[in-house]
Design a protein around this nucleic acid. Structure first.
Length: 873
RNA sequence: GCCCGAGUGGUGGAAUGGCAGACACAACGGACUUAAAAUCCGUUGACCGCAAGGUCGUGUGGGUUCGAGUCCCACCUCGGGCACCA
């Protein structure tokens, strides 16, 4: 028996699409047609190849791309590589292989794998961030940032990782260890390039409102930007008439409750202010605070530390002298690096004041009731003990005191952001070189016409050890002559972070071969913004924020026409491994119930390490909320799907799935698992389910013995029932694709097939239309069946079917009859029937009559065509 | 601690405030087969009942409504993000 021959079909159509360039988006197009730019977050081509998480988003976008093409849109659906980055460099350090070679190998593998899934990318637009023709423009954008004063150098303490020999961004440090490799990280001052993203904080915040993005992502970005309104207040310093301490506060209304002040350890006034007897203590404290690694800071969060400077500041509203402390709970990087402490109304100040026995003065009272004296009252209320603002509610009190401060020249309203400038350099080899050189220590831009500035080959990829990148050891590359002055010059040896190339790649896809500008303005105007951008939620903040920042800069200099790059964003949910049932055993082999096991796999009571044993679903049974072991019902079994990881051994390789079930099954299963945005566990049995469905589709049309069309395929006109089922399916699939509800679209097609396979006569027209609906999801089998059904041309360029509402109307419908809101029966009635007729029919039902026994009909709720509810009592 | 999101059969999930559990998996029964696989047909939320039918049922407790998985309030659990940002 010739079963649905997926591997032949898939190879055949992939070759066909390639040969005929079916998915090519030409440079010159009919721009009177609507456009659809559907984009995936391009991958980092790792050595491990594709995992099943990649094709999830890619299948979703491919369905949209194929659907929109059939709908008559010009579609831009490109793919490329975010190929700079640490893994290839670490591999180079280990093996001496040039990262360029590793990257090329990995890219080829990825491209092959993606092609094997049948994605309809326009491969002629492929770009790689590592290609000099690409990063030429990354460097060009950097020069524009530099010219606008948005790129500057600063000597700042950074996360220095001795093990990796490089500096890490905050987001690459997790619990004081490097995200990659888990090596310890310490703070070390270094000269860095920094991008002034903070200049764009307000616009990055404001423009979120107009975007069709998940609320959670917008909220995360808002929190990251962290706008807060308040006031800056200047405190005079006792005994130092030339100095003031400026603080930022969001609660200027609590100024009368400031009982001490705190400076960040880095604050220059900390030492200036220190009294002779405190100076040594302050210096020692600063030293230890600066040396603390991120890890220590995190660990020490539990207990606040600090020392008094011995100096005093004057509260501008009441002239009181209050002590000034140094403590590392105040951050140098936010606001002014100094605060006024109001322990009565701030949790952190309260904790500190309690610990060091500093006075606590209440200046805000709750509007109703009284505040708990054991904690800080941080809510809004009415000002008390507060002079000119006494009795005012918080909002008014803030305003009035701020105005008063301004009139006295002692403060003003101020907005602050949590967002920090973007540390933009890395001490690595495998990244874009900065188009910058130094003459007499002065930074100079490399002339634009000399771009790209390419990476030299190096002897060794090992970090130089000093913290500088391997580039600092390449003498012939490093030393140049300044073309302007003729003086000797040295190149910048830092390289750009991986984020750089991904900040603008969506623009290059529009015009990938242009060598006079990064994107042709006409093409940009037509294609931008990206209509749908799909990718993982792990990029919720950084990539999306950085890309938005660059885009706004490019907008400001007239390179792009939209203020935002990504109009609609969808995050696909992570795919977890198969659900695992785990039985725990102690050292003696005795089973331990899962509720006695902690997160690390140790016994909660004895702390003993336990061994985990995987069980099959036949060995467990559901009891109450969880699962128990069939052999011993007292033993609870942990039932959970885990994140796929090499160490856990639960990684699913898409190649294996394609080999066993075919690319169409892989695509279909990825979409059938559940809603796109949701986290969901993989199940090989689920793959088999959709594979069987495709087999049924095949056998609905093709005879497995003869390889010819089955006899039931006829050229008769479809019956009204057949038309109804078909047009219901068209409507459902169309609406579901538009709404990205691919799982229910597939269900609808399954329902169609379940019914159609029972038809002894299957009109060719109906089957052809069905196959065109299936096409975006399972393109190979669809193209093959389309052809076998005798249709001309490739299905990819065939128009999407419209449904005919006339086929959907029903003469007789079923209406549920409820009594007091509970369904007691169903009546069949004319679709147009009025209330009277329906009630009459309902009352004739025996089940309804039984419910009405001895009761009075009080009310009738009738929704025409929907339902009937009889209210009785 | 704070901010999001989610809790529905044995499992993944479906339901514009209107018949809860579509579709699929698993399980069970049957057909085909020497047998198995594949395929096809059927049953499948729990409980009571020979049946007709009934009772209960969407994390928990309240509320709004003729009617709540869906809306409101409080709580519990899980997942994600942030975390001394003044």
């Amino acid at each position: 028996m010739a079963k649905y021959p997926f591997s032949d079909i898939e190879a055949k159509w992939q070759a066909y699409w390639d040969e005929h360039q079916c998915f090519r988006t030409p440079d010159e197009i009919d721009t009177s047609k609507p456009k659809y730019y559907v984009l995936d977050m391009f991958p980092y081509p790792s050595g491990a190849g594709l995992h099943v998480g990649h094709p999830e988003g890619y299948t979703a976008t491919d369905i949209l791309a194929r659907y929109k093409r059939m709908k008559g849109f010009n579609v831009l659906h490109p793919m490329g590589w975010d190929a700079f980055g640490l893994p290839a460099e670490q591999y180079a350090v280990k093996t001496g292989t040039h990262p360029r070679e590793t990257t090329a190998t990995n890219i080829n593998r990825f491209r092959e794998q993606l092609k094997a899934i049948g994605f309809s990318y326009d491969w002629q637009r492929e770009v790689s961030t590592t290609d000099p023709d690409y990063f030429r423009w990354t460097q060009w954008i950097f020069l524009q940032l530099y010219r606008k004063g948005l790129a500057y150098q600063a000597e700042i303490p950074v996360n220095w990782c001795p093990e990796l020999g490089t500096v890490l961004a905050n987001e690459e440090v997790i619990d004081g260890k490097s995200e990659v490799g888990g090596h310890p990280v310490v703070r070390k001052p270094m000269r860095q390039w920094v991008l002034k993203i903070t200049d764009y904080a307000e616009r990055l915040l404001q423009d979120l409102d107009g975007l069709d993005w998940p609320d959670s992502i917008k909220e995360m970005q808002r929190n990251w930007i962290g706008r807060s309104e308040g006031a800056e207040v200047d405190f005079a310093v006792q005994g130092h008439p030339d100095k003031t301490i400026r603080v930022f506060t969001t609660r200027p209304d609590t100024l009368f409750g400031a009982t001490y002040m705190v400076l960040a350890p880095e604050h220059p006034l900390a030492v200036d202010l220190a009294s002779p007897e405190q100076k040594d203590a302050v210096l020692a404290y600063r030293e230890s605070a600066l040396r603390k690694s991120e890890l220590e800071r995190t660990e020490l969060q539990k207990k606040k530390t600090g020392v008094p400077t011995g100096g005093y500041a004057i509260n501008p509203v009441n002239g009181e002298a209050i002590p000034v402390w140094v403590a590392d709970y105040v951050l140098w990087g936010y606001g002014t690096g100094a605060i006024m402490a109001v322990p009565a109304h701030d949790d952190r100040d309260f904790e500190f004041a309690t610990q060091f026995q500093l006075p606590i003065t209440t200046v805000v009272a709750p509007v109703e009731g009284s505040a708990d004296p054991g904690v800080a009252f941080i809510g809004e209320g009415l000002a008390v003990n507060s002079g000119l603002i006494d009795g005012l509610p918080t909002a008014e009190a803030k305003q009035k005191i701020t105005e008063w401060l301004a009139s006295q020249g002692k403060g003003q309203a101020k907005v602050n952001y949590k967002l920090r400038d973007w540390l933009f350099s890395r001490q690595r080899y495998w990244g874009e070189p900065f188009p910058i050189y130094f003459v007499d220590g002065e930074a100079r831009p490399v002339p634009e016409e000399q771009l790209p500035l390419t990476l030299p080959d190096v002897e060794s990829y090992k970090p130089s050890g000093t913290g500088e990148s391997p580039l600092s050891t390449v003498e012939h590359w490093l030393h140049i002559t300044d073309p302007v002055t003729g003086k000797p010059a040295v190149r910048e040896t830092n390289t750009m972070p991986q984020w750089a190339g991904s900040c603008w790649y969506f623009l290059r896809f529009i015009d990938p071969k242009n060598d006079t500008c990064l994107v042709d303005p006409g093409k940009e105007k037509y294609w931008m913004p990206v209509d749908l951008y799909v990718g993982g939620a792990e990029h919720a903040v950084l990539h999306l924020l950085y890309a938005r920042f660059w885009h706004k800069v490019l907008y400001d200099i007239g390179v792009v026409s939209t203020v935002e790059p990504f109009q609609r964003l969808v995050n696909q949910g992570m795919i977890l491994g198969e659900i695992e049932y785990t039985l725990f055993r102690d050292g003696n082999g005795h089973a331990v119930s899962a509720d006695l096991v902690d997160g690390e796999g140790n016994h909660k009571q004895t702390g003993m390490a336990l061994t985990a044993e995987k069980l099959t679903d036949a060995e467990v049974e559901k009891r109450g909320e969880g699962f128990v072991w069939k052999q011993d019902g007292a033993i609870r079994i942990a039932a959970r799907a885990h994140k796929m990881s090499k160490s856990r051994g639960n990684v699913i390789n898409p190649d294996v799935v394609i080999e066993q079930y075919g690319a169409d099954s892989l695509r279909l299963y990825e979409m059938f698992m559940g809603p796109l945005e949701q986290v969901k566990p993989w199940s090989m049995r689920g793959v088999e389910g959709v594979y069987r469905f495709l087999g049924r589709v095949w056998r609905m049309i093709v005879d497995e013995d003869t390889e010819q069309l089955v006899a039931a395929v006829v050229d008769t006109e479809p019956s009204p029932e057949q038309n109804k089922r078909l047009h219901q399916t068209i409507r459902k699939v169309t609406e579901d694709i538009e709404a990205l509800r691919f799982n229910t679209a597939i269900s609808a097609m399954m329902e169609f097939v379940n019914e159609a396979t029972r038809w002894t006569e299957r009109p060719r027209k109906v089957l052809s239309t069905f196959v065109s609906l299936l096409h975006p999801f399972a393109p190979h089998i669809a193209e093959e069946l389309w052809q076998r059904l005798g249709n001309d041309g490739n299905l990819s360029s065939h128009p999407w079917p419209d449904y005919d509402p006339a086929c959907l109307v029903e003469a007789v419908i079923k209406i549920p009859v409820q009594v007091n809101g509970k369904t007691r029966g169903v009546i069949e009635t004319d679709a147009e029937a009025g209330q009277e007729a329906v009630v009459e029919a309902a009352l004739s039902l025996a089940t309804v009559q039984a419910q009405l026994e001895g009761k009075t009909l009080r009310k009738v709720i009738f929704i025409p065509g929907k339902m009937l509810n009889l209210v009785v009592g």
